[in-house]
């Protein structure tokens, strides 16, 4: 009997049972699987099957009997069956929209888990849940999403079971490729890019790795059910990944004031993610105060908004902004080209 069939038979048997199933009965019911060989080997085989069922969410446990009941294995029906989740159409739509957009991106950690979850929450909803026209694309442009998807699955499984991974990593900053061992703490998606945050054994510290820069990722396959590491209590994933161009975790935050004028004035909260704004002194523009941990990133972002956006304080930030502008201007002036 193949394993899938045996496990299904086990589920059917246990869900149907009126009383606990004893080990002797299991051996008798599955003679080819648990009945042959030593007791110890058969028990090990059953333990592996039981672990698989537990992972599938099947609440199988051993009960110690009393005068009324005998010892044996049971599946608690109450906690096995999915009850009506009772989601409103609006709640269902949110989960469906987000879930199918994530699946449509072609790479999402636990994509199979996600697909099953969507099926399950739709089980009682019937078939009228329409596929929403929302999707997600990964960046940067040249990402091979099949490769990212495969890597994410390995990382997700390793993070879930706390097994270390080994990977080859290309760092654009140093233009070097290194082989590293990493304890995967978690995965984060920012601006279309998936990152792994974890303890790097090569650098002896917590580091962030872009998933698309990894090659040959393998999880430690030894003793799959015993974790290799603990995630520190105070670890927070969001502390290690930047959401906006003005964030970076290595610097102390500074408050930078910018002014937006003309058409940009009304859009200030949009451009700066709801950082505090106020009208400028003359009432013609909007002043926005950004708490930046990465000044250079903020300045470049400000430059990309054009002449309607200027950096006004603190003085050294404003000076650096002018310096960058001057550099770009000079790179494009005739004098500079003559020199080149």
């Amino acid at each position: 009997m193949n394993r899938t069939e045996r496990l299904l038979d086990l589920v059917a048997l246990l869900l149907d049972a009126r009383e606990p199933i004893t080990w002797a009965e299991l051996r008798e019911h599955f003679p080819d699987d648990y009945g042959k060989g030593s007791d110890e080997a058969a028990e090990r085989k059953f333990e592996r099957d039981k672990a698989e069922l537990l992972e599938l969410g099947i609440p199988i446990r051993w009960v110690v009997g009393d005068d009324e009941k005998r010892d044996g294995y049971v599946v608690d029906r109450e906690s096995y069956y999915l009850p009506e989740v009772g989601l409103t159409p609006e709640e269902l739509a949110v989960l469906y929209t987000a879930g199918s957009a994530a699946l449509a991106s072609g790479a999402f950690p636990g994509a199979q888990d996600l697909a099953h979850a969507l099926r399950k929450i739709g089980f009682f909803a019937g078939r009228e849940v329409a596929t929403p026209k929302v999707r997600m694309e990964l960046g940067p442009v040249n990402v091979d999403s099949a490769q990212v998807a495969a890597t994410l699955e390995v990382l997700w499984a390793a993070a879930a079971s706390r097994k270390y991974v080994e990977l080859t990593y290309f760092s654009p900053r140093s233009a070097e490729t290194t082989r590293r061992r990493v304890d995967p703490y978690g995965l984060a998606l920012r601006r279309g890019v998936w990152s792994l945050v974890g303890y790097c054994h090569l650098r002896k510290g917590v580091r962030t790795f872009h998933v698309h820069r990894m090659r040959d990722v393998t999880a430690n396959a030894a003793r799959p059910r015993s974790p290799d590491f603990e995630v520190p209590q105070d670890f927070r994933l969001q502390d290690y990944v930047a959401t906006f161009p003005w964030q970076h975790r290595f610097h102390a935050p500074i408050e930078v004031t910018l002014e937006l004028r003309g058409e940009l004035a009304a859009l200030a909260p949009r451009f700066f993610a709801d950082q505090p704004t106020a009208p400028t002194g003359d009432g013609q523009g909007t002043q926005v105060t950004v708490r930046a941990t990465f000044l250079e990133g903020l300045l470049r972002y400000a430059l990309s908004l054009g002449p309607g956006c200027r950096v006004v304080a603190p003085a050294d930030a404003a000076a650096r902004w002018r310096e960058l502008l001057t550099k770009v201007r000079d790179l494009h002036s005739d004098a500079e080209r003559g020199a080149a």
Partner: peptide, 13 residues
């Protein structure tokens, strides 16, 4: 009825 959501399914969703 299907089994309940597993921890991984719920986390992915």
């Amino acid at each position: 009825a299907p089994p309940r959501l597993t921890a991984s399914e719920a986390a992915a969703l």
